[in-house]
Nucleic acid binder design. Structure first.
Lengths: 186, 186
DNA sequence: GGGTTTAAAGCAATTATTTTGCGTTAGGAG
DNA sequence: CTCCTAACGCAAAATAATTGCTTTAAACCC
């Protein structure tokens, strides 16, 4: 098992990680998935293949790490003025990202990993987002009767499930119903 | 894209498919995941590697096919006398299978695929199961106010989500609450 | 700051896997 | 029974993965 995260954060190590991740994202838009190889990625990143093998182990693990990074929220999610609105904006954007063909690849790469630490991090990011929405709601004085886990179970659960098994069956109206149900439950 | 399913069903082709699938299942219990290679599988199955490459394309796709097969229900699920009971028995068995280490691999292999047809088949099997439970409930005279999709959204959604991102947080009591919520909703 | 230590990267040789062209085999159709 | 063809086997060639050793550059300690 390799560590991959923040080994000697400032310096060459970090630059290599950045270069490799960038190379993967670039090449994902340029070549078919089955010709996306580690030697190709290494060349684009300006490093030797053995560096990639030693740090990430395999293409599968590398793709999982890059995919997980794309699941990480980059900016503060918008404040819509209500919990339901915040959840819809957030989950809606996720939904739109992941129904697309590249999004489907990202989701598959992330879910295809068995790295528990990686999955745990993804889960934590989602918890953090929902936690932020709940804090906002509380600050507004909204009465909320459900916890983070239940919201994730009833929103991200069905959403991830459908995105994986039947991506053509998701829609904004369906997502609205999920959110309404989640907020109404308990 | 390859077809894989039922090409010249009766004959050599089917025997090869069987032998290869069997070899994968055997070897999955014997060797670490990263030394499970196509040449190894081919040797165990008594075929040449090129046969496997030509039919399945890559290890990833082969594993996805084998994993999907394990998600297919083999026997008629037990009739417990109530819809809630049927759902709990079925989803509970799925949960127990998939929290285990080999189960986690199977789930990751299946979810890691981007073969829409394969995913669609998995979804269909689950629809069929729930449909059967609903038919039984109807025959018993149970009043049921929710449809197949909602039951899958509220049971298999959260379950698959948690099995993927936080397998240590599932439990039978949690699953019971999911099922109760699903049956009470709408 | 300058010297020391040590992860991590580069390089190159070795090994393993993947691809491919072509001959062969065995189901399926007439 | 014979022909036709998809799928398999075989072996050579191309490509990718592994590994031992060397070199580089962060990090650490005076």
């Amino acid at each position: 098992m390799r560590t991959t995260t923040a080994v000697r954060p400032g310096g060459r190590s970090a630059r290599v990680q950045q270069a490799v991740h960038d190379a993967v994202r670039q090449l994902a838009d340029e070549v078919e998935r089955d010709q996306l190889t580690i030697p190709l990625i290494a060349e684009r990143a300006g490093v030797t293949p053995s560096t990639v093998y030693r740090r990430w182990g395999s293409l599968k693990e590398l793709m999982a790490h890059v995919a997980a990074e794309r699941l990480k929220p980059e900016a503060e999610p918008q404040d819509t003025g209500s919990l339901a609105g915040d959840l819809l904006a957030w989950a809606g954007e996720f939904m739109e990202d992941m129904v697309s063909l590249p999004g489907q690849q990202v989701l598959a790469d992330a879910l295809g990993s068995t790295d528990a630490a990686l999955k745990g991090r993804c889960r934590q990011w989602q918890c953090d987002q929902v936690s932020l929405f709940l804090a906002r709601a509380h600050a507004r004085g909204e009465i909320v009767s459900c916890d983070i886990d239940t919201l994730l179970d009833l929103i991200m659960g069905p959403l991830t499930y459908r995105l994986s098994y039947a991506p053509d069956t998701v829609s904004e109206s369906w997502l609205r119903r999920c959110i309404a149900r989640a907020l109404g439950s308990m």
